[in-house]
Computed example of a mutant assay.
Amino acid sequence: MCNQLTGFIPDKLGELIKLEVLGLWKNSFTGSLPRKLGQNSPLQWFDVSSNSLSDEIPPGLCDSGNLIKLILFNNSFSGTLPMNLSTSSHNNFQGKIPNQFQDHPSLSVLDLSSNRLSGEIPESIASCEKLVTLNLRNNQLTGAIPRAIAKMPTLAILDLSSNSLAGKIPENFGTSPTLEMLNMSFNKLEGPVPSNGILMTINPNELIGNVGLCGGVLPPCPQKYTIKPGHPRNLNINHVIIGFVVRTLVIVFLGIAIFTGKLLYKRWYLYNSFFDNLFRKSYKEWPWRLIAFQRLNFTSTDILACVKESNIIGMGGTGIVYKAEVNRPHVVVAVKKLWRSESDIETGDDLIGEVSLL
């Protein structure tokens, strides 16, 4: 317990046969742990945090099978990290993190910060379904961040800062429904920061020290991250050009279609036909010409079609008067075909016709 005890931990503690709980935290013990500690007793809970202990952890302490919680932080222990740990931060443990967390599903706190641990983060950490705090800060961990960590149902605090983790942040990393604190600063991560969950509002200081990270709460990513693998930049430029050309052609064709539609409608409205005029006789084949003294909505072709014997309504000294009925727009006019004079015949001039509205 918290006292001012100094010196070595007595070896006789290893001879106790009913010892279940041993708390020696916040003292000034030095040296190493008793070699037989936990071998002869059902020791389940052992806390020697915040002392000045060193050397390796006795093998028998973790091999007994009874130990549930082992708290060793703020000492100078070295050697291989024991599996039956809970908080062993601020020591000198080396080597890899044991990959046997499936045997500890009830573990709620795992603090291995400030050691000299190396290797990758084991995937089996995700099997700790009750883990609330995971602190691996200030080690020498490498490799990628396991995607399975994002699926941990109770994880609230995650600190992976000051390591050598590489690769991209998993896309589903910010989707954990319980994650409240996340620190990945000072690693070798790269690529875009996912825009989901806690990563949308994370403090940029918790991502600094990763030269390759960009996007999200950090400055925008360079163009190389906006192009999918296997799609070179020139292909994107070609897509833009093709899209522009297609849009332009569509607009042109629509304009032509609208203009043609209006023209055909006008011909149908005025002449009750689209193409009849193309097959009618040319004006030059008629032996006279039509002169209009006001703007009319019909042509000489419509008038000439009515100049026939059945439409005669009068005859005088100067010519014959015909009744001409134009359908579009509907209008009835009188057409006077003048007699040809001798001077006209000699000069070869066409006859002159007069049209009057009835």
Rank of each mutant, 00 (worst) to 15 (best):
P82G: 10
E129R: 14
N236V: 13
K308T: 10
K323C: 11
L141H: 11
S89C: 04
F8N: 12
L61V: 08
G7Q: 13
G197Y: 00
I208K: 07
E180P: 03
I17W: 01
S282P: 05
G319M: 01
Q223H: 10
I258D: 06
F8D: 09
P122A: 02
L351Y: 00
N297L: 15
S54F: 11
I157Y: 13
L160P: 05
F259M: 11
K12W: 11
T299S: 15
K266D: 15
R280E: 15
S108I: 09
I125L: 15
C306T: 02
N311A: 10
L67P: 06
E206Y: 09
Y269E: 12
K168T: 09
S127I: 00
K284G: 07
L213E: 00
D350L: 08
L189V: 02
A334R: 07
N196M: 02
F244W: 11
T154V: 07
L189P: 02
G216Y: 00
G197R: 01
F29G: 00
I303C: 02
P194F: 12
R137W: 04
E346N: 08
K224N: 09
T87G: 01
L33H: 06
D276Q: 12
H330G: 08
R328H: 11
V246A: 12
F279M: 07
F186L: 09
F244L: 13
E325Y: 05
L117D: 01
R340K: 05
G353V: 12
K228A: 15
S108V: 13
R267F: 04
L134Q: 01
T347H: 11
I251A: 15
E285L: 08
R35N: 07
P192Y: 05
I345F: 03
D55R: 07
E309W: 04
A126V: 10
S195W: 01
V246H: 00
L270N: 15
T175L: 14
L358D: 03
D349G: 05
N311D: 03
L72T: 00
T347A: 09
G174N: 03
L338A: 15
A166F: 04
Y271P: 00
V321I: 15
N3M: 05
F46M: 13
R147F: 03
G38W: 04
K323M: 13
L61H: 09
Q140T: 09
L270V: 03
M1S: 14
P82A: 06
S41R: 11
S124L: 06
Q4T: 14
E120K: 13
N40T: 02
Q39M: 15
E342L: 06
S164L: 09
E120P: 00
P220L: 01
F73N: 14
C2I: 08
D55F: 02
F293L: 03
D159Q: 09
G317M: 06
G167P: 06
S76K: 14
T6Q: 13
T175Y: 03
S195H: 08
V326Y: 00
C128Q: 08
P58A: 03
L358M: 12
N91W: 03
G215P: 00
K308Y: 11
Y269Q: 15
V332P: 06
S164P: 00
N210Q: 03
T226F: 05
I320M: 02
P153E: 12
K12R: 07
L53A: 06
A150W: 07
V245K: 03
G119H: 04
A144M: 12
L249V: 15
Y271C: 06
N66E: 08
P10Y: 11
